[in-house]
Design a protein around this nucleic acid. Structure first.
Lengths: 335, 335
DNA sequence: CTGTTAGCGCGTTCAA
DNA sequence: TTGAACGCGCTAACAG
């Protein structure tokens, strides 16, 4: 593989000039710049990432940390991030962290600290204090998507408001017996500020505001299967709810499938609303609160690039849009 | 950030010994190794990736090249790769390439050549000769999943056999008017050996073997929407098929939804079979040829790690398992 | 088993 | 505007 001195020799200049010509930093006459570029092209020369990083301290790579790769929301946000970063010549280094504490520690203590990345984006990651500290300790820009974290610059939708919006939609239709499918607050590490918890809080408060005391919550794990099971439990109860608010579209779809399996029609017999804007929702006529996942990724990429360009980190929390999309899975309760 | 000499000073040894102790290469007494490790832990020292790479030529990172991030098959395979690689301490650098030639060239000519990765895994990528050459030119192990490519070591299911298996299943049930939803061979760059083309060939040949001449193909783009549209076209034709073989589960699900929308029951009025093993298939009772996507990723990771450990590249093509999973969306045609 | 030394390939001073 | 020379942080070869 051709090195910088091959290019220098071929162009009849010094390596310093090659470096300046190709990076654009420092003065180079147009003529020599062209000659250098031609030589580089002819030789197929590409700057070595490690040598360049070692010399400059910059890597032209951004680390993206995700808890899941194979769930719709995460892969969609990731696609948005990728779009935004690739255009600017950045590579993405992917860190998938599970719940396993040992593996998590490996990622936060080792992998992320190898000085391989110029910035970090996390997606819906619930970090403990030590992990947040480790991230900050990296000394690079950090953007946390969908993880309201007092210790980090975050970019997040107002999930409390999302919970309120979905609940208000059902209340406005006249529903009073509503079950929420999602996080039930029983999780051990729940700080109350996780995305699932906030959606639930929005639900509970909206009900309270409307004078409904009974806030029914069925725990589920954000999969179709979990949503289906939770909905089945609710709908087969003695006094079943007239509406279901699922904290994700995947669970909402599970709920619709469960309702169908029980011989119930949606929305005639039971209304269902979700959150996400999952592409599949369209096929189920699912009413949802869209949070524009791909846009979140693009936005995070833009924010990170800004900070790498020297912009000040957005103070506190960037706020992300959301919107009710009514596709027909909700209707007034039956008389 | 602590450097290697900080550790050396604290442990009372030379930097070379620190390097040896932490990397495990070269002889170090147990006692000093422990002292060095303790010092490194105390200082929170982690080897700088760029410095280490520059010195060794190894990066401990694997590049993964994908055409899509937000489609089930790709994110699932990616999850499998990640699992396999993270366990062994490798990072993943993600390269998402679109159809756009300029962007593709940037990825193949620049990004991949920055000497940032020790190996490459591609997922269902159709590469032209120049791109294949560029990959080979990297001089690193390459494993191509699901892209039968004569120029590369590939790991792929026998998609011709997959097409045959699905078609045979329908033929065995007694179907004779079968439409294939997928690639119609009209694509410009189709070499005839792409995954979609092979599945279609399997379909066509199976029919021919059974003495059925009319091989009906409806083009679709591997999305639910595309599958739905193609199925609608087929099922509203003058003499509609009694069975549909979709080249992916997403299209098969679209076909089921389209059939329902037309008031047709599956499988009573029309049988549907897909390919993939998409998790959603279960909820639609979709009969499919499962290809164990996550396992493909794990297998590719293992193969790459083997080659990095010095094993010979698997000659020719590694073969991946597939299996018919009957969930009830196929049945004999109506009398 | 351990220390010394010379690069790995590039970016960036500082002089010219 | 250009070139020479040093150093980024670590590893590998060689001595001891």
């Amino acid at each position: 593989m051709a090195g910088i001195d091959d290019v220098a020799r071929r162009a009849g200049v010094s390596t310093a000039t090659v470096s300046r010509a190709l990076s654009g930093r420092g003065p180079v006459s147009a003529a020599t710049r062209d000659r250098v570029r031609a030589a580089a092209d002819a030789l197929g020369y590409v700057v070595s990432a490690s040598a360049s990083s070692l010399a400059t301290g910059r890597t032209r790579a951004v680390g993206v940390v995700v808890p899941f790769l194979d769930r719709w929301f995460f892969s969609t946000v990731l696609a948005g991030i990728s779009d935004g970063l690739v255009r600017r010549g950045y590579d993405i280094t992917l860190y998938s962290v599970s719940e396993d504490p040992a593996e998590r520690r490996r990622v936060f203590d080792d992998h992320l600290r190898r000085q391989r990345i110029d910035a970090v984006i996390t997606i819906a990651l619930e970090l403990d204090a030590a992990e947040s500290a480790h991230l900050r300790g990296l000394g690079v820009p950090i953007v946390a998507i969908a993880g309201p974290n007092p210790l980090l610059t975050t970019l997040t939708v107002d999930d409390l408001a999302v919970g309120r919006l979905a609940t208000a939609h059902l209340l406005d239709l006249g529903h009073r017996r509503i079950a929420h499918i999602g996080d039930d607050g029983a999780g051990s590490a729940d700080t109350g500020s996780s995305v699932p918890a906030l959606r639930r809080h929005g639900f509970v408060r909206s009900l309270a505001d409307a004078g409904v005391d009974d806030a029914w919550v069925e725990a589920a794990d954000f999969t179709i299967e979990g949503g289906s099971a939770a909905a089945t439990r609710a709908l087969t109860a003695a006094a079943p709810p007239t509406a279901l608010f699922a904290a994700s579209d995947e669970m909402a779809i599970g709920a619709i499938l469960a309702a169908r399996a029980l011989g119930l029609r949606v929305p005639e017999d039971v209304s269902v609303i979700g959150v996400d804007g999952h592409e599949l929702g369209r096929w189920f006529g699912l009413t949802t609160v869209d949070q524009f996942a791909r846009g979140q990724g693009e936005r995070a990429a833009a924010e990170v690039l800004d900070e790498l360009d020297g912009a000040e980190p957005a103070r506190g929390r960037g706020t992300l849009p959301f919107e009710l999309v009514d596709r027909g899975s909700t209707a007034p309760p039956r008389a």
